[in-house]
Amino acid sequence: MDPATIGGIVLAFGALVAMIFLEGSQLTSILLPAPIILVLGASIFVAVASGTLKDALQAVKALPRAFVGRPARPAEAIDEVVHAAEIVQNDGGLLALEAESQRTEDPFQRSALQSLADGADADQLRTLLEERIETKAREDAVAYGFFNAVGGYAPTIGIVGTVVSLTHVLENLSEPAQLGHMIAAAFIATLWGILSANFVWLPIGAKLKRVSDLEVERLTLLLEGYMSIQAGARPRVIDERLRTMVPDEPAPAAKAA
């Protein structure tokens, strides 16, 4: 679990609450049901309207990854590829990877290992794996694109709520004692539009995109590693090559003779 998203959102709202109290105001002054319902509800519904129902369901399904998902680690992918290369080297060739393919729960790795064991040529293998990576990236783009869309609509819908409220204010100019409160309440919709976009929806969209980018990076490392195995490279060479593809991953220390 990566606590960055939930921790960041909680701290952001904490900073808002601190400002409210430091200004001598009350938290209840921004917790007005009508603008909150309009901004949150309409923002989500127009985002649903901008795509398909399947897109929205896919986004909801992906939402937990922004809070409790474990980001992919490239180093683990490198270790798995090197392990597969060692099996090929020590157990007599690519056919030995068939048993290994049955032990992994990762569909991408299972498919790649089985293809290697079946003797797929280099072009076929690369095409197969690249298409799987591209499909994964497109699926992820639907999810984070949905939350980015919600974040894009929310501020404008907040303005719509403010205009509606100000219309109500103009209908009650005969009550000057109430105008200050009514005008302040009118701007709460704009506040929640900007607030929800920048404190919730856009951070979630950005986090899901980052998680997707890390997963695509992991799959790309696996792709290049399996292609190296298919080409007959030795485990040590594969290890060094893959680590050069990861900026923050140090090369392994040389073993003593």
Rank of each mutant, 00 (worst) to 15 (best):
Val160Cys: 07
Gly145Lys: 00
Pro252Met: 06
Glu105Lys: 12
Leu191Ile: 13
Ile183Lys: 06
Asp55Leu: 01
Gly51Ser: 05
Ser25Asn: 07
Ala62Glu: 03
Ala141Arg: 07
Gln58Phe: 01
Leu195Gln: 11
Ala49Asp: 02
Leu16Tyr: 12
Ala117Asn: 05
Ser212Thr: 13
Ser115Leu: 14
Glu240Gly: 14
Val88Ala: 08
Asp121Leu: 01
Thr52Tyr: 00
Gly7Glu: 09
Gly7Asn: 14
Ala49Thr: 03
Asn148Gly: 06
Ala34Trp: 01
Leu27Phe: 07
Glu76Ala: 11
Thr104Asn: 10
Gly225Gln: 07
Leu170Asn: 04
Lys136Asp: 09
Phe199Gln: 04
Gln178Asp: 13
Gln26Gly: 01
Leu38Pro: 12
Ala34Met: 02
Ala47Cys: 08
Ile6Pro: 08
Gln178Ile: 05
Lys207Ala: 04
Leu166Pro: 04
Ala149Lys: 14
Asp123Gly: 05
Ile37Gln: 09
Ala47Val: 06
Leu63Tyr: 02
Asp106Asn: 13
Glu105Cys: 01
Lys209Glu: 15
Ala49Phe: 05
Gly92His: 08
Thr104Ser: 11
Ile204Asn: 08
Ala59Cys: 03
Asp118Ala: 13
Thr244His: 11
Gln124Asp: 11
Leu116Ile: 07
Glu224Gln: 03
Glu215Phe: 00
Trp201His: 08
Val169Met: 09
Thr135Arg: 14
Phe108Thr: 09
Ala154Ile: 13
Asp140Thr: 00
Val68Glu: 06
Leu57Tyr: 04
Pro33Val: 01
Arg73Lys: 14
Pro107Asp: 12
Thr244Cys: 02
Gln109Gly: 04
Thr5Leu: 15
Pro35Gln: 07
Asp91Met: 14
Asp123Tyr: 08
Glu23Phe: 02
Leu116Trp: 06
Ser25Leu: 06
Ala154His: 10
Asp213Lys: 12
Glu23Met: 06
Gly158Asn: 14
Ala59Val: 03
Glu134Cys: 09
Gly51Met: 03
Met182Glu: 14
Ser228Thr: 10
Met182Lys: 14
